[in-house]
Design a binder for these strands. Structure first.
Lengths: 207, 207
DNA sequence: TACGAAACTGATACGCTGTACGATATGCGA
DNA sequence: TCGCATATCGTACAGCGTATCAGTTTCGTA
């Protein structure tokens, strides 16, 4: 599992094949199947391993909002360390013990707020959905590590005439300038969006 | 492209192989390569095809909020028609003309609000991120069509002892009852979360 | 109408994937 | 030391994307 995570971190999830991971361990291919039932199992193990990294061990802030912000940053940082995590988000992979602990920890944030179960669930879902969307987009924009050996400058070179055409077509007066100048400050964008979501939630809470 | 979309709709994205799509068209495998450069191209075409479905052709509501809600519903409905869309969200697939038009349409919603470009971009990003997260989760919960022939009842049967163990372990006092009883009303959950996001945004807008 | 070029179709093959199967090697309890 | 469970391994199969090249059909122009 650690070997698989290492490969994924270094070369992306696509590089994680049974043969490759076995080679990394100086074992023959089929040897892995003594320990896992299928590749799906391996992916589930990888997911649970990195899931452990987002668990908060120190006491959470008593404010539900501060606690969620803390968890949010840990989640995002974990995904930045393991960008392949986002490739598995849309896949049905078994949730392991650390995944469950993580959900439970999030739910614990609402203790004492007097929320009914449906509302707790919805708050959690909205929070998770924003997080999912953000980290997926961020991972996409940063690009997978060593993605087909195409460097950023090469990519930009390919994109350039495409962008010029876009600007000159005049069909996208609002979009074109944004693409042209780019948007900086991922950290700020993350916080801004997160705060909008939390503001919205906070406004609907009983006080 | 239409053949590929049909296969994906019916059997999931995994069923879309060059050989399979060719067979669907009564053509030999390599024939497809007269029209597309690679499978990636085919996926980009599929994406742009369904992207056309979310474009709003009638005039958008003048209220930015109502306009975004309208677009949000169209996006979600499109994904429900083509759940494989979520499998491509974390993949670097080329954006086609319809994708660009869609972004431009979203940006047009902010016309006249006097937002600077950075703020417009952030509002759009937050909206998109929530949408992405929601539809990915919803598609996951609904399951891919014909996913390995495992029916819902079978799945529930497999999950049952797992859930019982979860409840009895006592380690997940908050999560366990939620899994046990489930949470209904995807439409309501969608609107609730969307409104939280929009509330948060609205609160920060100049008035 | 004839012809050259372009577009299309097709068979075959290569290297990759996950994994089923069966044979061998290893280590441990009796 | 024996017997057996466990671990390891080689081989093989079906599927994938697609490179190559040869054969065929279609079409624009002279």
């Amino acid at each position: 599992m650690a070997a698989a995570v290492a490969v994924a971190d270094a070369e992306g999830l696509a590089a994680v094949s049974i043969r490759r991971v076995a080679a990394e361990l100086d074992a023959r291919t089929m040897t892995l199947y003594s320990y896992i039932g299928s590749k799906e199992d391996l992916l589930a193990l990888m997911l649970d391993a990195v899931g452990a990294e987002v668990l908060v061990h120190e006491p959470l802030p008593s404010s539900w909002r501060e606690a969620l912000v803390m968890i949010a940053w840990r989640e995002r940082e974990m995904v930045l360390r393991h960008p392949w995590r986002t490739d598995l988000i849309s896949q049905r992979v078994a949730v392991g013990p650390n995944g469950l602990r993580h959900v439970e920890q999030k739910l614990s944030v609402f203790d004492g707020l007097g929320l009914d179960r449906l509302t707790s669930w919805r708050v959690l879902a909205a929070f998770n959905d924003y997080m999912t969307g953000f980290v997926v987009r961020e991972a996409l924009e940063r690009g997978t590590p060593r993605s087909e050996g195409i460097s950023d400058t090469e990519r930009a070179a390919v994109a350039e005439p495409y962008i010029r055409e876009l600007v000159e077509s005049g069909e996208f007066p609002r979009l074109a300038p944004m693409i042209q100048e780019g948007v900086r400050g991922a950290d700020d964008n993350f916080e801004r969006g997160l705060n909008w979501v939390l503001d919205g939630i906070e406004g609907s809470l009983p006080r």
